[in-house]
Amino acid sequence: GGHPVTTQMVETVQNLAPNLHPEQIRYSLENTGSVEETVERYLRGDEFSFPP
């Protein structure tokens, strides 16, 4: 991942996926670069990993 992630982006995802840890959200956003894509992954039931 190398996309810039803002606190705003993390908070937006958190509102839609409250049971995800912020670190999981941030890591996913760094890989996708997209709030929409991260939320899609969540709704699909994809696994969210923590940063290594």
Rank of each mutant, 00 (worst) to 15 (best):
R41G: 06
E23A: 14
E30N: 07
T12A: 15
S34N: 09
Q8G: 10
G1C: 13
A17Q: 02
P52Q: 08
L16V: 11
L29I: 06
P51C: 05
V35N: 01
E11R: 12
H21L: 09
L29V: 02
V10R: 04
G1P: 12
P22S: 09
E30V: 08
P22I: 13
L43Q: 09
L20D: 01
N15I: 14
E23T: 09
V10Q: 06
Q14R: 13
G2V: 14
T32A: 04
Q24A: 05
T12F: 15
E36T: 11
F48M: 08
L16P: 00
T32H: 04
A17P: 00
E47G: 08
Q14K: 12
T12P: 00
A17V: 09
N15C: 14
H21T: 15
Y27N: 05
V10G: 01
L20W: 03
E40T: 13
V13Q: 02
E36P: 07
E37K: 12
E23V: 08
L43W: 09
T38C: 05
T38F: 03
H3S: 10
S34G: 04
P52L: 09
N31W: 13
T7D: 15
V5Q: 03
S28C: 07
N31E: 15
Q8E: 14
N19S: 11
Y42W: 11
V35K: 00
R44G: 04
G33E: 04
P22N: 05
L29C: 04
E30C: 10
D46R: 05
F50S: 04
F48K: 00
G45S: 03
T7E: 14
P18Q: 08
P4M: 14
R44Q: 07
T6I: 06
V13M: 04
P22E: 11
E47R: 09
T6W: 07
E37V: 12
P4V: 15
P22H: 08
E11Q: 13
V5C: 05
V5M: 04
N15P: 06
G33K: 06
E23L: 15
D46F: 12
E47T: 13
D46H: 10
Q8C: 11
E11G: 07
Q8K: 12
T12Y: 15
G33S: 05
F48N: 01
R44N: 09
V10H: 03
D46C: 14
L29S: 02
G33H: 08
G1R: 12
E40Y: 14
L16F: 12
Q8M: 12
Q8S: 12
L16R: 10
T7S: 13
Y42K: 00
I25N: 01
Y42L: 05
Q24R: 01
V5K: 03
L29F: 01
R44F: 04
L43S: 06
E23F: 10
S34E: 03
V10D: 00
N31K: 13
T6Y: 06
V5A: 05
N19L: 12
V39P: 01
N19H: 11
I25F: 00
R41Y: 06
E36N: 10
E40I: 14
N15R: 15
V39C: 05
G45Y: 01
T6H: 06
T7F: 12
E47M: 12
T32C: 06
Q14D: 00
A17T: 08
S34H: 03
T38S: 06
T32K: 00
P52K: 07
R41W: 05
R44P: 00
R26H: 07
L29A: 00
L43F: 11
T7P: 14
R44K: 08
S34T: 06
P51M: 06
F50V: 04
G2R: 15
Q8P: 06
P22L: 10
R26P: 02
V5G: 02
S49E: 14
T12K: 13
F50D: 03
E40G: 10
L20E: 02
P22M: 09
T12D: 11
Q24L: 05
F50H: 05
E23R: 08
T32S: 07
E37Y: 08
P22G: 05
T7R: 14
L20G: 01
T7M: 14
L29H: 02
H3D: 08
N15Q: 15
P4E: 13
V39F: 09
P18Y: 07
S28T: 03
D46W: 12
Y27T: 04
L43H: 09
V13G: 00
T7H: 13
A17K: 01
Y42G: 00
A17M: 08
P4W: 15
P18T: 08
E47Y: 14
L29N: 00
G2F: 14
Y27F: 12
G33F: 07
N19P: 05
L43R: 11
D46I: 09
T38I: 05
P51H: 05
S34L: 03
L43P: 00
V13Y: 00
M9C: 08
E47F: 14
E47A: 13
H3R: 12
S49C: 12
Y42S: 01
G45W: 02
S49R: 12
L20M: 06
S49V: 14
N19E: 13
M9I: 03
N31S: 14
H21K: 10
V35I: 13
I25Y: 01
M9P: 01
P51L: 04
N31Q: 15
E37M: 11
E47V: 14
G45P: 01
P4F: 15
R41F: 07
L20K: 01
G45K: 03
Y27R: 05
V13W: 01
Q24F: 02
V13A: 06
G2W: 13
N15M: 15
E40P: 01
P51R: 06
V13T: 05
N15W: 13
V39G: 02
Y27Q: 05
G45V: 00
M9Q: 08
D46M: 11
E47H: 14
F48G: 01
V35M: 08
G2Y: 13
T7V: 13
A17E: 01
Y27D: 02
L20F: 03
L20S: 01
Q14N: 06
L20T: 01
T6V: 06
V13E: 00
T7Y: 12
T32I: 02
L16T: 06
A17W: 05
A17C: 15
S49Q: 14
L29W: 02
Y27L: 09
L43C: 08
H21I: 04
T38D: 02
L43V: 09
P51V: 05
S49P: 15
R41V: 04
L43K: 10
V5E: 03
T32L: 05
G2H: 13
P18R: 07
L20A: 02
A17I: 13
V10A: 04
E40W: 12
E40N: 15
G2C: 14
E36Q: 13
V35Q: 03
L16C: 10
T12G: 06
A17N: 03
F48E: 01
T6E: 04
V35E: 04
E11P: 02
V10T: 05
D46V: 09
E36Y: 11
V10K: 03
D46Y: 12
I25W: 00
G1E: 11
H3G: 10
R26W: 11
T6S: 10
L16S: 08
Y27V: 06
V39N: 03
V5I: 11
Y42D: 00
N31H: 13
E11L: 14
H3F: 14
P52A: 09
D46P: 01
F48D: 01
E40L: 15
I25H: 00
H3M: 10
S34P: 01
E23M: 12
E37L: 13
E30M: 13
R26Q: 08
A17F: 15
V39K: 03
T6C: 08
E40M: 15
